[in-house]
C-alpha cells in the first residue's frame, strides 16, 4: 500500500510508549500494532482524532503517501 504510517516516529518524538498511547486513546495494543506495522486497511476518524490529540500533531504527521513502482 502506498500509504505509510509514521506512528513510530511520532511516538519517539513525543517519547511515548505504544501501550501508553493505546491506553490513552482507548484501543488495544494489538490494534495499535496493526496500525504501526501498516497492516491496517482503514483508520476511523475518531481513532485518528484521538491519536492527533494525544500526540499533539496533525494527521499528515502520521500518514504519508509514497508513490509505488507498479
Amino acid at each position: 500500500m502506498a500509504i505509510y504510517v509514521n506512528l513510530d516516529l511520532m511516538l519517539e518524538k513525543r517519547q511515548m510508549k505504544s501501550n501508553e498511547l493505546a491506553e490513552k486513546i482507548g484501543i488495544t495494543t494489538a490494534n495499535l500494532s496493526i496500525l504501526k506495522t501498516g497492516k491496517a486497511k482503514a483508520v476511523r476518524f475518531s481513532t485518528l482524532e484521538a491519536i492527533c490529540r494525544e500526540l499533539d500533531c496533525q494527521p499528515g504527521d502520521i500518514l504519508e503517501y509514497r508513490e509505488e513502482d507498479l
Binding site: 496500525l35 491496517a40 486497511k41 482503514a42 483508520v43 476511523r44
Partner: peptide
C-alpha cells in the same frame, strides 16, 4: 470482514 477486522 477482513477489512473490518483490520480497521483501527
Amino acid at each position: 470482514k477482513e477489512e473490518n477486522e483490520l480497521t483501527v
